[in-house]
Amino acid sequence: MQADTKAAPGRKLISSGSEFEAIYNYSRAVVVGNQVMVSGTTGYDYATGELPVGAAAQAEKLFGNLEAALVKAGGSLADTVRVRIYISSPDAYEDVMQAYARAFAGVSPACTTVEAKLFDPAIFVEIDLDAILNARA
């Protein structure tokens, strides 16, 4: 967890250990009450700094990164209520959505997918999401 003396009481800041979080001063996720907002997350391996090759491999690693953030927040992917997916090309759509379908089987959160120019041409997908802890239907 990041140390932040400016954080409002009742906010829990979650870090993945990504160098980008430290450089640009943001949290992987912020927990307020039972709500969790997870920042845009990619398929980087935060321990090694390596990015898997290809949309399918990146999507699989990305969902692992999202799950890790949610576990640190006290939840899991099953608590997800809203997902926003940004893909670099329509060619990545099927690989990303197959990984999405596996990650959210039985959860079915609200979801939007858009094509966007991502900050690194090697990145095929980035996802941010919102979750509500312990609010499963």
Rank of each mutant, 00 (worst) to 15 (best):
F63W: 05
D45I: 05
Y46E: 09
A78L: 02
M37K: 09
E21N: 11
C111A: 12
M37E: 08
G54S: 10
V38R: 00
G75P: 06
G17A: 11
I127Y: 00
F124W: 15
D95S: 13
A78E: 04
G75Y: 00
V107K: 00
P9K: 12
G17I: 15
K72V: 07
A57K: 02
Y44N: 07
Y46P: 15
T42Y: 07
L129T: 13
A101P: 08
D130M: 15
V31Q: 06
S27F: 02
A59K: 03
G54L: 05
G106H: 02
A69N: 03
N65R: 10
A69W: 00
A68P: 05
Y24H: 15
S88T: 10
A101Q: 09
V96P: 01
Y24Q: 15
D128N: 15
V107C: 03
M37V: 13
D79E: 05
G74E: 02
N134Y: 11
A56K: 07
G74H: 01
A47H: 11
V114Q: 09
Y93L: 10
P109A: 05
T80R: 00
K61L: 12
T5K: 13
Q58Y: 03
A131I: 08
A3D: 12
E94R: 09
V38L: 00
Q58T: 05
A131Q: 01
E19A: 15
L133I: 06
A56P: 14
A69L: 04
P52Q: 11
D95F: 02
A7N: 02
A56L: 10
F63C: 12
S39I: 09
I14H: 01
G106R: 00
T41W: 01
A116Y: 04
A47M: 10
E115P: 12
P52S: 09
I132Y: 11
L118C: 04
G40V: 13
N134E: 12
I87A: 05
A135H: 14
E50L: 13
F119C: 13
N134S: 15
S89P: 12
A7G: 06
Y46S: 06
L129I: 10
T113E: 02
S89A: 11
N65G: 07
I14T: 05
Y100W: 01
E67H: 04
D95E: 06
G49D: 08
A56E: 15
S76C: 04
S16H: 02
K6D: 11
Q58H: 08
E94T: 15
A68Y: 03
I123P: 07
R84F: 03
V81Q: 13
D91L: 05
E19H: 14
E50C: 14
S27C: 08
D120S: 13
F124M: 14
E94F: 03
I85R: 02
G40W: 01
A8S: 14
Y93M: 08
I127A: 01
D120K: 01
L51E: 07
A116C: 10
G43S: 07
R136K: 10
G75T: 06
A101I: 06
V114G: 11
V30D: 03
V81F: 07
G74M: 02
R28M: 06
E19K: 14
K72T: 10
T5G: 12
Q35M: 08
R11H: 12
E50Y: 10
A22G: 14
L77G: 10
G74I: 00
G74L: 00
A92S: 14
V83A: 04
